[in-house]
Design a binder for these strands. Structure first.
Lengths: 229, 229
DNA sequence: TTAAAATGGTGATTTATATCATCGAGTTGT
DNA sequence: ACAACTCGATGATATAAATCACCATTTTAA
């Protein structure tokens, strides 16, 4: 589904690095850009494909995940409005090594890869913001490594809930657009374990879940579970 | 221990990004630099400290690790000659969020942080190489997330051995400068489990260990264990 | 020089979590 | 409108790996 384009110059929705560009550079970026809409559940980019474009999330929400040989998945990250996807594959990497699919109806700006690379080389402020973005992800990945290897079920799921409320949905209560399977694939446990953890947290009054409406009732206790679990 | 400095201009040991600098820029970098030697086991940078310098590994080997509240550690990465350490904390992050210590006698070039940041803004090729370096780490971290969450003991330890031989020591056989505890903290398992895995691999003829001399006898089988474990 | 601490190792027990079997409710598609 | 799926859920069982107790050897420190 290709929608009518609006120029980057007029976009009031720019990511940090694009705010650093001159009008001239924005015109160039704009001419190397496509706008695409996806429905919830649709695949946006497939692991193993050639990597040709950076994706900018104009609206909606996506999951970035590794497809593993045994058929299971590991969700690496959940991205909301304003995120750039595919940065780790700039310059040297020809093949995309993860998949991206829509968790909600989503609009993507697809920006030519080489255009993006040229902007890094030619505009220091742009490069700086790209490095910032990459570093944010790296530090987040380090924290995830700790959470996923040194915490057990409840601690990990507490991390997942805090991440969803604070970073992904930026709300409480929030409407969960991830399935139990998604939660399991993000938390790195089985679906059964997620269901059990939800039940436990609900029984203990830490959270409330009705359908897909989730409310964190006790942030302090969730923090405590995150630390001790 | 501060040693006599040699100018960056004459250094034939530069990392990829410093190769991109002009002589003028190298002079500036050189005047914002210190060279420091560490003994095996010494702490080079401590988690929680203010972050003021990028470290460049001139000789030796270091581990970068998270110190966790329960007293255990998670080794995030092992760096050898030519590596830059601390890149993820450029620009926005005032506090170093991991520790660095020497696995062998090590010489470090300590480069002023703001100098490094200026070089990114002013030299597009330098910025490009920094992005490349960050991306290499990000992709490596994603693979580690998969290994640590979706493989069990033997598979993970196989990954550790392959990483040590191919990336860290670039040799086979190699002299292991990591303790069993280090191996456990890198593989994200208990020390007992590492010892058991070593025994199993040795019995199965996959590796041979005598003291700290390690030889991988069957790469194919180790790859297989990595995939199926 | 001896004591203390760290490292490497073995076997038994415990525990967290995955797996399996099963079921009802809701959703999709023809 | 009904079959076919998917999703959320429950309880019983199986299992990988941590923990614990213990010991030998080496290294470090007093």
């Amino acid at each position: 589904m290709v929608e009518p384009k609006k120029s980057c110059l007029l976009c009031n929705n720019k990511s940090e690095c694009f705010k650093q560009l001159t009008d001239n550079e924005l015109v160039i970026a704009n001419s190397n850009r496509a706008e695409i809409s996806y429905r919830k559940g649709e695949m946006i980019a497939k692991q193993g494909n050639f990597y040709t474009h950076i994706l900018y999330l104009q609206s909606g929400m996506v999951k970035v995940y590794k497809e593993l040989p045994d058929g299971s998945n590991l969700i690496l990250s959940i991205f909301g409005v304003g995120s750039l996807i595919g940065l780790p594959f700039l310059f040297k990497n020809q093949i995309l090594d993860y998949s991206v699919s829509a968790l909600e109806d989503t609009t993507i700006c697809s920006i030519n890869r080489t255009t993006f690379e040229k902007l890094i080389q030619e505009n220091g402020k742009f490069a700086t913001e790209v490095v910032n973005q990459l570093n944010y992800c790296t530090i987040y990945n380090y924290d995830r490594l700790v959470s996923l290897t040194h915490k057990q079920l409840n601690g990990r799921f507490a991390d997942t809930l805090l991440y969803l409320s604070r970073v992904v949905y930026k709300a409480n209560p929030f409407i969960l657009t991830l399935s139990r399977k998604d939660l399991a694939e993000y938390t790195g446990v089985s679906v059964m374990s997620i269901i059990r953890a939800i039940k436990d947290f609900k029984n203990d009054g830490v959270i409330d879940i009705n359908g897909n409406k989730v409310q964190i009732l006790n942030f302090n206790q969730l923090e405590r579970i995150s630390k001790t679990g």
